[in-house]
Amino acid sequence: MPASDYQDDLALLTEAAKAAGEIALGYWKRGPEAWDKGGGAGPVSEADLAVNAMLERDLRAARPDYGWLSEESADSTERLAAKRVFIVDPIDGTRAFLAHDGGFAHALAMVEDGRAVAGVVHLPALELTYAAALGGPALLNGEPISPSTAQHVEGSTVLTSKLSDDPGHWRRGVPRYRRSLRPSLAWRLCLVAEGRYDATISLRPAWEWDIAAASLIAECAGAMATDRNGSPLRFNRPNAQSNGLVVAAPRLHADYIAQLRHWPE
């Protein structure tokens, strides 16, 4: 597909993400009905479902030949045969959303032949919109962004969970990094893309809807985004998960991969 068509899809995703934000803010801090999905999948709310319904309706109407994968839609193997697929998290960070924390995001990607080629991560409560299309720059509210220049794991700032402090994940023991966390995984990748943090890692499987859009934004900014073993990320897989995640500028990324133990899928 020509790069201009990726820009067309990016414009479509951006418009949809901002419409999603308007719906979400209509529920935010107003006590929306919520329940646990069970099986360790976490909470879902009526806001998640309202956003998902709008996105599925509008995006699929605009691109009827594209496949569909969303955290809040029943999955279908039909998407596996599609050349192009929308991969969507209607609200990434539902716990934060329900706790009146503005760090929730709408993450929307278009994937072509397994590769993310257009993506938007929109945080409506914080008025932040990250966007990128393959071959173009990564933008935050229309301005180009780039990752930090950190080169070594020691002393780097990393967005990750306490799981990363388990020595079993490291070849030479847990490095002396500075660990923080944000509720939305998509936002964590974008914070690395704009250089506010040096890296983000996930040492457990990462759902595609959490990382497809943001991994493209990070790559277009100049960072590398791979699984925990350093293998390229591929999307629209049958299990819709990656084998963990490492995102950082190239030299720092290489140092993380060298220090992490490889983990079989």
Rank of each mutant, 00 (worst) to 15 (best):
A62K: 06
R63Y: 06
P64Q: 09
Y66R: 01
W68T: 05
L69E: 11
S70A: 02
E71M: 07
E71G: 08
A74G: 01
D75P: 15
E78T: 00
R79A: 10
L80T: 06
L80D: 14
A81W: 10
A82F: 06
R84L: 02
D89C: 08
I91W: 07
A96N: 12
A96K: 07
D101N: 12
A107V: 07
A109H: 15
M110Q: 07
D113M: 01
D113Q: 09
G114M: 10
G114H: 05
V117N: 00
G119R: 00
V120I: 03
V121R: 11
H122P: 14
L123V: 03
L123T: 08
P124Y: 00
L126K: 08
T129Y: 11
T129N: 12
T129K: 06
A131F: 11
L134A: 03
L134H: 05
G135R: 00
G135Y: 01
L140F: 03
P144Q: 03
S146Y: 15
S148H: 04
S148Y: 01
T149D: 12
V153P: 02
E154N: 04
G155P: 08
S156F: 11
T157S: 14
V158T: 09
S161F: 12
L163I: 13
L163Y: 14
S164A: 12
D165W: 13
W170M: 00
W170P: 12
R171T: 04
Y177M: 07
L181R: 10
L181A: 08
L189T: 13
L191D: 10
E194D: 12
Y197D: 13
D198K: 05
D198M: 08
A199W: 01
I201R: 11
